[in-house]
Amino acid sequence: MPTDDPRSIRDTFARYPSGIAALAAVVDGAPTVLVASSFTVGVSEDPPLVLFAVQRSSTTWPTLATAPSIGVSVLGERHAAVVRRLACRDRARRFEGVGTRVLPSGALFLDGAPVALECTTEDVYPAGDHDIVVLRVGSVESDAGQDPLLWYRSRVMTLAGGAA
């Protein structure tokens, strides 16, 4: 398939499974969330860095980028029913039916996340029609009893089975 066909590129990229993360904070008194399937952990352990890519056309990232601290919640199986709502254009509805907690820093976390990271923005790099955002991790939490969701073939899926 030619690489100048946006649909074939999108379909091909969709065949790579990834986790789903909600990046959130309270900004100017309002909860703000951006959902990313491009979130990557383990970029660096010293210092602890993670990253995600965000479309330059995002209307949420410019607001979230002003937050002094961002909560990253890796979405778990209990979030399957709310993933699309968290990402919807209607910002007022995004958190309906979603339990959250907010740290004094303003970082916002979704209840029941398998992984929760409090982060600050370290660097932003241009990358085509996206920006790559590197976050410095300030604190970590994990819940081994919760399994993450996956984004695969443009669908939300659960992690099934054990180690191969």
Rank of each mutant, 00 (worst) to 15 (best):
W151K: 04
T59L: 04
L108R: 08
S8N: 14
R153F: 12
V134C: 06
R93E: 07
T100N: 07
P31H: 06
M1R: 14
P114V: 02
T40W: 04
S57K: 10
G76I: 08
V83S: 10
T59D: 09
T32H: 06
L117Y: 02
V115R: 09
Y16Q: 11
G97Y: 03
L51E: 07
Y16P: 02
T158L: 13
H79V: 03
V43F: 11
R7V: 15
A163M: 15
F13T: 04
P31K: 09
S18Q: 06
G161Y: 02
V102C: 11
P48Y: 01
S154H: 12
A116H: 07
R7K: 15
T100R: 10
A144Y: 10
D5A: 03
D123L: 10
E118G: 03
V137W: 04
T3I: 15
A65P: 08
L64R: 00
A113P: 03
A24Y: 06
I9S: 11
R7L: 14
V83L: 06
G162H: 09
A144W: 06
I70N: 01
S44N: 09
V98H: 06
C88I: 02
A107P: 01
L51V: 02
P17V: 10
T12L: 14
A80K: 12
A14N: 04
R7D: 14
G99H: 09
V137R: 08
A107I: 01
T63A: 13
G128L: 03
A113S: 12
P2E: 14
V115Y: 04
D11T: 12
R85V: 05
T63W: 05
W151E: 08
D90I: 01
G112N: 04
D28M: 01
P126G: 12
D147E: 15
